[in-house]
Nucleic acid binder design. Structure first.
Length: 288
DNA sequence: CTTGGGTCCTGTGCGC
DNA sequence: TGCGCACAGGACCCAA
């Protein structure tokens, strides 16, 4: 799925088209995504003005003028796709083709007062949407219990060390645990660990001192680099504008099993291993 | 409490 | 070409 850099890129793409605009038409094409959509979902959204679009972890949070927040999670395959008003600018079929989309998976389609549409397309349907009062967000089942934002200055070596203290699981699994730190998924966990020179199998609780400092720096660097590149486009992911991110070309280890380790002077070979049913890519020679 | 495994769903790419 | 299987960017839920 979209990890933090992809969700943040989507957020930035949606802001100019949605913030300040009224949702004049809301089409809900199925009763549920990963979870059932809330009662009267489309009716409660229709006529509302979007005031801000924020992000917490991998959740997009669109605040509305009635005090509610539209929560969106993209799951593994979810996309938010912007489409300009049609003015003889081609057929819908051509639009789908150009965006490598299948309209069969457009589950929610929003139209704004200036004629733009945003379609939530999600073949695997691991994504979710909910509508919650702004004041109740912190207590929301899926928000409550989330760890710190990795790009927050408060997330530093001391904070990470504290979060990992006593953890018996692998550092790779801990980084992907949203209760420890949010926004990091399989790709960026692998990439951050490589940059930090830490083995994905290392016990989380043993990441301390200099290692914790290196890991925090690596996490922030890789996430910032990926955001600057518009995220990583593998199969499904695109920016809301339809553009492809290009950070996938900068992966140092992810999906590069058998290739030479890119670290200067290392000379090792990238290996794949399976942890918790997820592929991990790392260099056994320079990650300890 | 923590930890690991199964699970939801569809699409794609690979080996045969 | 076709078929079956492994695997895919997430994270909830439950058993141990």
């Amino acid at each position: 799925m979209p990890e933090l850099p992809e969700v943040e890129t989507v957020r930035r793409g949606l802001v100019p088209r949605l913030v300040g605009h009224v949702l004049t038409r809301v089409e809900q094409r199925r009763p549920d995504l990963r979870f059932p959509l809330p009662e009267a979902f489309a009716r409660r959204l229709t006529g509302r003005r979007v005031t801000t679009i924020g992000r917490r972890a991998k959740y997009l949070l669109a605040e509305l003028d009635d005090g509610n927040v539209l929560m969106v999670h993209l799951g593994m395959s979810g996309r938010m796709v912007l489409e300009a008003p049609r003015g003889g600018a081609g057929t819908l079929g051509e639009f789908y083709h150009a965006h490598d989309l299948n309209g069969a998976h457009d589950h929610v389609v929003l139209t704004t007062d200036d004629g733009w549409t945003v379609r939530f397309n999600d073949p695997r349907r691991f994504g979710m949407m909910d509508l919650v009062p702004a004041g109740g967000l912190a207590a929301h089942k899926l928000i409550r219990g989330l760890g710190p934002e990795p790009l927050d200055p408060a997330f530093d070596a001391a904070a990470l060390e504290r979060l990992l203290q006593g953890k018996k699981t692998s550092i790779k699994a801990a980084l992907m645990d949203q209760r420890v730190v949010v926004g990091i998924g399989n790709i960026y966990a692998c990439e951050a660990l490589h940059r930090a020179g830490i083995s994905p199998r290392r016990l989380a609780g043993t990441v301390r001192n200099e290692r914790a400092a290196r890991l925090v720096a690596a996490i922030k660097a890789v996430l910032n680099d990926a955001i600057a590149a518009g995220g990583s486009s593998l199969r499904d992911y695109r920016q809301a504008t339809g553009e492809l991110g290009y950070f996938q070309h900068r992966f140092r280890v992810y999906d590069r099993a058998g290739e030479r380790c890119p670290r200067r002077g290392c000379g090792g070979t990238v290996k794949r291993l399976v942890q918790g049913a997820r592929s991990t890519f790392y260099c056994p020679a320079c990650q300890r």
